[in-house]
Simulated scan of single mutants.
Amino acid sequence: MRVAIAGAGAVGRSIARELIQNGHQVLLIDKEPRSIRQDRVPDAEWLLADSCELASLTEARLDRCDVVIAATGDDKANLVTALLAKTEFGVPRTVGRVNHPNNEWLFTEAWGVDVNVSTPRIMSALVEEAVSVGDLVRLFTFRQGNANLVELTLPGDSPYVGTPAGLIPFPENCALVTILRDGQVYVPTAEQPIEAGDELLFVAPSEVEEELERLLAPGSHGG
Rank of each mutant, 00 (worst) to 15 (best):
Ala8Leu: 05
Gly9Phe: 06
Arg13His: 04
Arg13Asn: 07
Glu18Met: 10
Leu28Cys: 03
Lys31Val: 03
Pro33Thr: 15
Ser35Asp: 11
Asp39Met: 13
Trp46Met: 12
Asp50Ser: 14
Ser51Leu: 05
Cys52Leu: 07
Ala55Trp: 02
Thr58Val: 08
Glu59Ala: 13
Ala60Pro: 02
Leu62Asn: 06
Asp63Phe: 05
Asp63His: 08
Arg64Ala: 12
Ala70Met: 04
Gly73Asn: 13
Asp75Met: 08
Val80Cys: 03
Glu88Thr: 00
Val91Thr: 11
Val91Cys: 10
Thr94Gly: 06
Thr94Gln: 11
Arg97Ile: 05
Glu104Ile: 13
Thr108Arg: 12
Ala110Glu: 13
Trp111Tyr: 10
Val113Ser: 08
Asp114Cys: 05
Asn116Ser: 12
Thr119Lys: 07
Pro120Trp: 12
Pro120Ile: 09
Arg121Ile: 02
Ala125Glu: 00
Glu129Gly: 09
Ala130Tyr: 09
Val131Ile: 14
Val133Ser: 13
Gly134Met: 13
Leu139Ser: 05
Phe140Ser: 06
Phe142Thr: 04
Arg143Asp: 13
Asn148Gln: 13
Leu149Ile: 10
Val150Asp: 01
Leu152Pro: 07
Gly156Val: 08
Val161Ala: 04
Gly162Leu: 05
Ala165Phe: 09
Pro171Ser: 15
Glu172Cys: 03
Cys174Val: 15
Ala175Gln: 09
Thr178Met: 13
Gln184Leu: 08
Val185Glu: 15
Glu191Ala: 06
Glu191Thr: 08
Ile194Gln: 08
Val203Asp: 01
Pro205Arg: 11
Ser206Met: 10
Val208Leu: 11
Leu215His: 11
Ala217Glu: 04
Gly223Ala: 14
Gly223Phe: 06
